[in-house]
Design a protein around this nucleic acid. Structure first.
Length: 120
DNA sequence: GAAATGACTCAAC
DNA sequence: CGTTGAGCCATTT
């Protein structure tokens, strides 16, 4: 289960007003090449709590993903992002070049430290 | 243990 | 730019 916590930890590092892609989170979470795990983890996130800002995690296309189980709350996620100052394209896409989260070295160092714990 | 699922990503046309 | 196909592996049943 630490795998998920790793992802949550990274997602929590995402500051408001910015978005990160699954690949980005996966890379920082040590799940390089396994973006699906991130998506799966976010799906498992208990959105009833604010533990993880899953809303700031989108796909590499800059679109806000949605799940059939999430049906109906897709607009809610968009609203939350808009509330953070993020603008959506006419197609519902976000300008990653403007809003994509740029992980600071501190986060990378933390990630590396986390890897060490796991890698042994 | 084995099969099925999945909020994705990269590459090719 | 949009669609199609293959890769990835932990979680779930």
């Amino acid at each position: 289960m630490l795998t998920y916590e790793r992802i949550y930890a990274v997602v929590r590092q995402i500051p408001p007003g910015q978005v990160a892609t699954y690949g980005q989170v996966a890379e920082l979470a040590g799940l390089i090449g396994k973006p699906r795990l991130v998506g799966y983890a976010l799906y498992r996130v208990d959105m009833t709590t604010d533990d993880v800002p899953w809303q700031r995690v989108i796909n590499a296309k800059g679109e806000v993903s949605e799940s059939p189980l999430r049906h109906g709350s897709d607009y809610l996620q968009r609203a939350m992002l808009e509330d953070e100052g993020i603008e959506f394209d006419h197609r519902g896409r976000i300008d990653l070049g403007k809003y994509k989260w740029r992980p600071p070295d501190s986060v990378i160092e933390q990630a590396l430290a986390a890897f060490g714990e796991n890698l042994g």
